[in-house]
Design a protein around this nucleic acid. Structure first.
Lengths: 162, 162
DNA sequence: CATGAAAAGTCTAAAGG
DNA sequence: CCTTTAGACTTTTCATG
């Protein structure tokens, strides 16, 4: 069986050509359609239809520019584990919406287990991290406790096709 | 002072037009250059030069397609905190390179503090998570201990210009 | 640095296999 | 589902303010 066939949510299948398209677009979302077509070995018009189908089926969810936070003066990153008061567990959605509005928040992970969620933030310096935790977390009525760890290095990779 | 002037690493400055360009490209990296130019209020030829400059200065580090792991059959995500044996601390770089090669790893955070790093992985199901931890972490000579938390929800946001 | 105009290249739809 | 073709649209370069 030379061909992959991971089924997607919409019932379509990801074949080898789709996989190759995805891999190229993960590397460079701005590759011209005709170059992309040539690299994956199909005609440009077929390629355009394939890319559209991947987007329509929800496999490719968007195309975004990666920006270096350090280049914007945000040279520090931190992970903050937050435990929510047991009485406030049912209001997590509310809290989530608040956190999402904070400009410093890069990622938000809602977890099962003892910790309730982890925030990934970008900051100018350690005073900025401290202020963020004190003002937006420690002082928050839903928050039971926090634990902050500085990020020394962050590696992020696109998901690999199984 | 109506104009922003965050200095970047290369000594250039991010002015309001650059900030507007970055914001648009974070939303949609594939926006046509002439549309982008119109939205930020400059000529297409100027816009092309601005975008190139942002890339050359390392402010914009790339353009990538976002892919839904669930659409590829990876419906589960986990965060795994890993503590490294004290004797192996000086070989973290080696370990990092190994982890980066694993196809299931989405992100890798190197931390200061008691935990040494956190892995963010995508998996088919809980058996896949368990196998990953057992085979690649617990069995690894550098690893002292691990703690796995399932991710119920993951929100990821582009960095905001300060 | 920014611009406009012209050349080079790319996108896309339609028709046919 | 793929390919070819041809017209429309975009990108890009470069000379000039």
């Amino acid at each position: 069986m030379a061909q992959n066939n991971v089924r997607d949510r919409a019932g379509g299948a990801i074949d080898d050509v789709d996989a190759a398209i995805i891999e190229q677009l993960q590397r460079d979302a701005r590759i011209p359609n005709n170059q992309l077509a040539e690299r994956v070995g199909i005609a440009p018009s077929t390629c355009i239809a394939r890319v559209r189908s991947l987007v329509d089926r929800g496999v490719v969810t968007g195309f975004e520019a990666r920006v270096d936070p350090a280049a914007l003066g945000l040279g520090l990153q931190a992970l903050i584990s937050v435990s929510v008061r047991s009485g406030a567990r049912h209001r997590m959605a509310e809290f989530s919406a608040e956190m999402r509005r904070m400009p410093d928040v890069l990622q938000l992970f809602f977890l099962g287990g003892s910790e309730d969620f982890i925030l990934h933030i970008a900051a100018r310096d350690s005073a900025h991290v401290r202020d963020f935790v004190l003002e937006h977390l420690s002082a928050h009525p839903f928050v039971a406790s926090t634990r902050t760890s500085m990020v020394f290095e962050h590696v992020s990779r696109a998901v690999t096709i199984p």
